[in-house]
Amino acid sequence: RSRTNFTLEQLNELERLFDETHYPDAFMREELSQRLGLSEARVQVWFQNRRAKCRK
């Protein structure tokens, strides 16, 4: 699998939701992934990586 390149719109939406909650539930992830045209797994990994970045 190659690296996912997020569009600016996708990143803005992901960051907006991250500001609301660092741990979106499965329903939120599924709804977001459909809206952004990403797989739920990519959304989940993005949040994992974003939380790690936040801890640094």
Rank of each mutant, 00 (worst) to 15 (best):
L14R: 00
R3S: 15
Q34D: 07
S39V: 05
R50W: 04
R35L: 04
Y23H: 15
K56Y: 05
R42I: 12
L17Y: 09
V45P: 01
R50F: 01
T4E: 15
T7D: 12
T4F: 11
E13G: 10
H22K: 11
N5P: 11
T4C: 11
T7M: 05
R55G: 13
K56E: 14
T21S: 08
W46H: 06
C54W: 11
R42A: 15
Q44M: 08
Q44Y: 00
A41I: 05
S39T: 13
N12P: 02
Q10E: 06
H22C: 09
R42F: 09
R1E: 07
E30P: 00
A26P: 13
Q44E: 14
T21Q: 12
N49V: 05
N49R: 05
Y23T: 09
R42N: 14
Q34C: 04
R51N: 02
M28A: 11
S2H: 15
F18H: 01
R55H: 11
T21C: 12
E30G: 13
S33Q: 11
T7R: 03
L36E: 01
V45L: 10
F47I: 04
L14P: 00
C54K: 09
F6V: 05
E15S: 05
E9Y: 05
A52V: 08
E9Q: 04
P24D: 01
K56P: 06
S39K: 10
K53G: 12
E31P: 00
A26K: 14
E40Q: 12
S2A: 06
E30K: 11
R29C: 11
G37L: 03
R42D: 15
N49Q: 12
V43T: 02
R16F: 05
V45D: 14
D19L: 12
T4P: 12
S33Y: 10
E15K: 04
R42C: 15
R16E: 08
R42Q: 14
Q44C: 10
S2W: 02
V43W: 00
L32V: 08
K56C: 15
V45W: 09
E9A: 11
N5Q: 15
K56D: 07
T4K: 11
L17N: 07
D25L: 02
K56R: 07
A26T: 13
R51Y: 03
V43M: 05
E30A: 12
R1W: 01
L36F: 13
A26N: 13
L32T: 04
S33D: 04
A52M: 12
N12M: 06
D25Y: 02
N49Y: 05
T21G: 06
L14T: 00
W46R: 01
H22M: 14
E15Y: 15
L11A: 07
S39W: 03
Q48T: 11
A26S: 15
E13H: 11
H22V: 06
S2L: 04
R3K: 15
H22I: 07
L32Y: 05
R1A: 14
T4I: 08
N49D: 15
T21R: 06
Y23D: 11
R16G: 08
K56W: 06
F6H: 03
R50A: 10
D19P: 00
Y23C: 08
E13Q: 05
W46K: 00
A41F: 04
R29Y: 08
D25M: 03
F18W: 11
L11K: 14
L14D: 01
